[in-house]
Amino acid sequence: MLEIKNLKVSYDKVEVLHGLSLNVNEGEVVALVGANGAGKSTTLRAVSGLVRADAGTITLDGRRIDGASAVDVTRAGIAHVPEGRRVFAEMSVKENLLVGAFQRSDKDGIARDLASVFERFPRLEERQIQMSGTLSGGEQQMLAIGRALMSDPSVVLMDEPTLGLAPLMCRQIVKIVRELNSQGKTIVLVEQNARMALSVADRAYVIEKGEISVTGTGQELLHNPDIKKAYLGIA
C-alpha cells in the first residue's frame, strides 16, 4: 500500500537518509525502530510531505506522493501524529479535533468521527471545552491521535507515541494501536522503545544511520540476538 524506494533526504545539504526503502501492506502494523538520530522521524516527515526528498520515490496505492504537499498527502488518506505529543495548547480539546478534520467537507462524516473519537477516548469528551495545554501527558497523546483520526485516514503514522509516558499509559497506547489496526487502519509506528514496538508490530524495520539494517516480523526481531543486544538491552 505504502512503498518507499531509495529515499534520500537532507537537511541543509547534510544527507540524513541515504537511499532508504521499505514497504507497508494494507492492514499491517509496521514498526520502525532505531537509535536516536537514525532518521525515523525524517522518514515519516518525508512521507507526509513536510520535508522534500532529494531522490527516490514514495507511492501510496501505486500513486506517487513524493513532492505532494502536506495538504494533498492528508487528503490522500495519510495522517501523521508528530513526535512530542503536539497539541494546539491554547485551543480547546474540541477545537483541536476539528482542526484535524479541516480538509474534509462531509459534515455528517465529521460528526460521526468526532463521536467515535469521544467514544474511544471518553476523557477527551469530558474535557472537550478545556484548553488542551492543561491536559496530562497521556491525555495530550490521546488528543494528538484523535486529531489524526479526524482526517479519516487509511494510514496512520505515529512518531514515538509512548515517549515519556507512565507504563500504564504506554499499555493504553499499545491497546489503542491494536484497536485501530483491528478496525482496518494501517499503522506505521516509530519507537525507541523497541520491545513495545516489536511486540505489537506485524513486521519491523531497523533503521541505522539513515538506512535499513535489518527487517523481519516483529517476533523474529524480538528474538534476533543482535537486536536483543543493541536495542533491547539484553546481552
Binding site: S48, L50, A70, V71, V73, T74, R75, A79, H80, P82, R86, V87, F88, A89, E90, M91, E95, N96, V99, G100, F102, Q103, R147, A148, S151
Partner: peptide
Amino acid sequence: RSLSTDADLARSGGI
C-alpha cells in the same frame, strides 16, 4: 488560531 499556536503542527495536519 491553530496557526498562531503551532503552524508546523497545522501543516502536518494537512492545513
